[in-house]
Structures are given as structure tokens and as C-alpha cells.
């Protein structure tokens, strides 16, 4: 029996080594930012060529006279935003191909922009399966892609963003940018018949008090996605409709709050002072009724409550007993 356990254990260790080795290898995603300074400088110069036109400065002082400035205005990028994104340090042309190097850009250049899956094959495959289960994919298969939500020039994963307020702001902007915009929503809903009128978000969630506060404190996906069955992914991409979405307040508003394993997953890992609170990591950015409690204070209040009740009951019992004795004596 023991040897079986032992060999199982050895197998598990070996498997663990193999998996971590594999993931270390997988970290070398195509186009990954190099660490060699010479290569970094080469990429910087290559990207600077694009930024020569595709930035506010480029728009103000175009390097050429024959540019359609009205079009360019829609295509302005912020280098600082790109440098903070997941794809910081990558060369523009890794995704965009060679077609954009010269101007005017090559006619078919747009078709050769890489899909997410070309570099994130395993992840994208798993995510696609989840995404395909949601209305967005079911009803708008062609139009609704990864890029509808993810701007590859700006998006930062929660793990990298850290601050829950920033995570919430970024992730909710994806959904709200469409669900609160008649124009953008109609662009998509036009393809289903009968065309769906955009319902107002606050009306849809009228059962939730202070929706605005919640939009700033939690993500739509906290309630609209199940926990990911794939461990390596922070969240599932399956969007749940009204039948399955989370409506139970206590999921978040209790000591066993789901927030700890979702939005505050990363905050919990590098938590700061805890002051004896349950879910202390949340306290840095929000006070969540029911979730962020101090067990010491709660116990103190409980003891005081118990003592008060005990003293009062004892006092009352003694009063009754002595009054009865007095009455018996006088009669």
C-alpha cells in the first residue's frame, strides 16, 4: 500500500515538474519582448516609425503631406498605454505583418493582422469553447470576436493590473461601452430579428441597490460568468443570461465572499496590513457589508450582548423570587 502511495507521489512530483517546465517553455509566446538591449532598441525604432503618424504628435506634425488626417484622427494611439499593456515591448509588425511598413499601407494588410489564437493557441482554444456558449457568440458569430472586447494595444490582465479599482474600471468599460451605447449596441443587435432594443442597465438591475456603486466596485463578470473550470484561467468567458446570473447578495456580502477568489484573487496574494479583519485584502479598496468583518470586535460585541442579557435576566429572576418571598411572609 505504502509503495503504491510512494510511487503515486513520485509520479505526481514528476508530472508537476513536467507541467511547470512546459509552462516555462510556453511563456515564450511568439513575438515576446526580448531582454537583449540591442533588440529592445531595434523594436523601439521600428515602433517609432508607426508612432510617427499614429499619435497625437504625428497628427499635429504629419511626416508627409498626402495623409488623410480625418482618417488618421480615428487611428491615434497612446504609446504610454501600449507600454503598460500585456503586449508592451512587442513590435507592431509582429501582429500587423509587413503590409503596414510602407505608406500608403498595402491593400490587403488588414487581412493579415494576427488573430489572438495564432500566439495564444492553448489559451485561446479553451477560451473559445467558453465564449461560444454565450449569447454574444451565438447571435453574432461573425461580428463578435475576441477583439470586440479586448484592445490588444491596451488590455492588461488582472494579475498585472493588481489594483481592484483599475481592474473593475477596465473590465467593465468593455461591457458598458456597448451595453450603455445605443449606437454600438445597435451595430450588433441589428443582425438579429426581431432587432433587440438596448435595455437600460440600471433598469435591468433595479433589484440591486445603488447600482452605480456596484459598477465601480465589482465587475459585470463577477455575476455574469461561472467560475472557470480551467484552473490556469482567472475567469470563464461564458456569459450567463438572466436565468443563471448571480442574484444572491450573500455570494459577495458574507464572510465566505466569492470576491476573495475572484476580483480580489490577486490583492489577496499580496495583501497588506490586516488589522485582524476577515477578507482584509478587500479593505484597501472597499468596505463590503457582511464580508469585511472583524472577528475580535464581533466577539466582543457578542460577549457584551450576552452579559447584558444574563445580568438583566438574573436581576429580573431575583426580583421575582424576592417579591414572592416577601408576599408569603406578609400574608
Amino acid at each position: 500500500m505504502k509503495s503504491v502511495t510512494q510511487s503515486l507521489f513520485a509520479f505526481a512530483v514528476l508530472a508537476g515538474v513536467a507541467v511547470s517546465g512546459a509552462s516555462a517553455f510556453a511563456a515564450e509566446v511568439k513575438g515576446a519582448a526580448p531582454s537583449d538591449p540591442a533588440l529592445v532598441e531595434k523594436i523601439r525604432q521600428s515602433n517609432a516609425a508607426c508612432y510617427g503618424c499614429h499619435t497625437e504628435q504625428g497628427l499635429k506634425a504629419p511626416p508627409r503631406a498626402d495623409l488623410d488626417l480625418e482618417k488618421l484622427r480615428q487611428l491615434v494611439h497612446d504609446p504610454a498605454q501600449f507600454d503598460a499593456s500585456n503586449h508592451a515591448g512587442m513590435e507592431c509588425t509582429v501582429c500587423h505583418g509587413q503590409g503596414y511598413k510602407a505608406f500608403p499601407h498595402a491593400a490587403g494588410a488588414k487581412q493579415s493582422i494576427s488573430e489572438c489564437g495564432e500566439c495564444h493557441a492553448t489559451k485561446a482554444l479553451r477560451i473559445e469553447t467558453q465564449f461560444e456558449a454565450s449569447v454574444h457568440a451565438k447571435n453574432f458569430k461573425e461580428q463578435f470576436t475576441c477583439r470586440t472586447c479586448h484592445d490588444p494595444h491596451a488590455f492588461r490582465v488582472a494579475a498585472k493590473l493588481g489594483d481592484p479599482h483599475k481592474i473593475v474600471a477596465q473590465d467593465n468599460a468593455m461591457c458598458v461601452g456597448c451595453h450603455n451605447s445605443d449606437l454600438r449596441f445597435a451595430l450588433f443587435s441589428a443582425s438579429v430579428t426581431p432587432q433587440k432594443v438596448r435595455p437600460d442597465l440600471d433598469t435591468l438591475h433595479a433589484w440591486l441597490p445603488n447600482t452605480r456603486l456596484h459598477w465601480q466596485a465589482v465587475r459585470c463578470i463577477e455575476c455574469h460568468t461561472p467560475t472557470s473550470p480551467v484552473k490556469s484561467l482567472g475567469m470563464s468567458h461564458e456569459i450567463l443570461g438572466k436565468d443563471k446570473a448571480e442574484k444572491n447578495c450573500v455570494t459577495c456580502h458574507s464572510q465566505e465572499t466569492a470576491l476573495a477568489t475572484r476580483l480580489y484573487r490577486f490583492a489577496a496574494e499580496n495583501g497588506t496590513a490586516d488589522l485582524g479583519f476577515a477578507n482584509a485584502a478587500i479593505l484597501d479598496s472597499a468596505y463590503v457589508v457582511g464580508a469585511t468583518r472583524n472577528p475580535i470586535v464581533d466577539r466582543t460585541v457578542g460577549v457584551l450582548f450576552g452579559l447584558t442579557v444574563a445580568v438583566l435576566l438574573g436581576h429580573g429572576a431575583l426580583r421575582i423570587a424576592l417579591a414572592l418571598i416577601r408576599r408569603r411572609r406578609s400574608s
Binding site: 497588506t272 496590513a273 488589522l275 479593505l283 484597501d284 479598496s285 472597499a286 468596505y287 457589508v289 469585511t292 472583524n294 470586535v297 460585541v301 457584551l304 450582548f305 447584558t308 442579557v309 438583566l312
Partner: peptide, 25 residues
Amino acid sequence: GVDGLLPVAFLHYIAGSVVILFMLA
């Protein structure tokens, strides 16, 4: 260094508890 609602909630909870203890007595 923590969310500004914490001191508010804490005072509310403590003061509320005092009111309840008073109410019992």
C-alpha cells in the same frame, strides 16, 4: 490607508451596538 467607508461603517456598527445594549437595559 484603508477604504474611507471602513471608519464610517465601524463607527456605525459600534454606536449601533451601544444603542442596542442600551435598549435592552
